[in-house]
Design a protein around this nucleic acid. Structure first.
Lengths: 196, 196
DNA sequence: CTACCAAGTGGGAGACACTACCAAAAGATA
DNA sequence: TATCTTTTGGTAGTGTCTCCCACTTGGTAG
């Protein structure tokens, strides 16, 4: 009973091969100019297999678990924090949980994702989902209904504030620590009532 | 010199035919189950022509001019109003400018956009761009720099709040006045610091 | 070692969104 | 009417993604 060890290892290797070759090709010739067929060939698998590992071409770039980490950290925050404070702490913790190498890789993929419109759109959609989930958690914690206008508005405001910071650099692939610092600042502004 | 009148009219009619038939088919059989070929056939044009009027299938549902109307109204507001007051007035005017039929279609299209993941993703991406424009407008009004973080965060929060209300639970019967009223309520909440 | 089962792979056929191109039709102009 | 421009339809193709089936490979049990 060796419990599929070899299989698991092979799958991990295949997955990494696909992802690494894809990123390399994207870097070398751009996202659109790279076909799934090319990626599959470079990773020495068939196109069918590519789609078994990644449901779409976008998912190769999209596979970051930042949102999950952030959500997890969010739920671990003490209940006396305001939601925005909890989100800020969650972001900080999620970043801190990366080791430097992972962090660098994550930033590269994010920057890349932001530069390709379809991928960027999907990233934003996932961000919105995460924030929605957080709103749900907040609703539960404060004993409010999940459709409560105040909760919805709150979540919407958070999403909008984050987007407002994320947006201006869309072209200039500037995903760095400073970006997250500015997100934190913007959320702090939201917390203090958005003074103009 | 009759200046292309017939042509313009025909183009408008073709565009409307494509859009209306598309929406009808989406309603009847769903977005994914409806092919461009079917839409084109229903509108009595060729698939080529479909793509001349709408660059992608998504754009049929995405073409809403609410933003433009709102910005127009925003800039027409008297300068002594506070930004929030101006935004509230602008939104009220933008909604009022629709005739009932247009308004119904707009709401249906929004609901569709939010229920289909790809379209929703693109909507969010466009929201990001709208935030830019809004920040610019607010900056102009308050005499601040358009890149000012506080201004951007503010614009983002406002649009985020509007979005959160505009994304209604699907298949509801929220009446028109109610919708605006809820937007206004949500903005009031934002103004008072989003109490939870 | 062998036989067997489950999991993973490759390859073909095809749907569908979308592009590039060209020839025909329709509208505008003189 | 003849001519020029815009719009259209049709054809051929590319690329993403799905379905399906035969084949191979890893794990397991006699």
């Amino acid at each position: 009973m060796q419990q599929d060890r070899l299989r698991e290892r092979k799958k991990a290797r295949t997955r990494a091969a696909i992802r690494d070759n894809a990123l390399r090709l994207f870097r070398e010739q751009g996202y659109h100019a790279t076909t799934v067929e090319q990626i599959a060939a470079a990773a020495e698998v068939s196109p069918s297999t590519f789609f078994r590992y990644f449901p779409t071409k976008e998912d190769v770039v999209l596979g970051d678990d930042f949102d999950e980490r952030m959500f997890g950290a969010f739920e671990r925050q003490p209940p006396d924090l305001t939601p925005v404070a909890a989100i800020r702490a969650a972001i900080r913790e999620a970043i801190a949980a990366y080791d430097p190498q992972e962090w660098a890789r994550f930033r590269e993929m994010s920057a890349f994702a932001m530069s390709v419109s379809e991928v960027r759109a999907r990233s934003l959609d996932e961000l919105a989902r995460t924030i929605d989930a957080m709103a749900e958690a907040v609703a539960k914690r404060t004993g409010r209904a999940s459709g409560d206008l105040a909760v919805r508005a709150y979540a919407g405001a958070v999403l909008g504030v984050v987007l407002s910071v994320l947006t201006p650099d869309l072209g200039d692939a500037a995903v760095d620590d400073q970006l997250y610092q500015r997100i934190d600042e913007a959320l702090a502004l939201l917390e203090s009532g958005l003074p103009l």
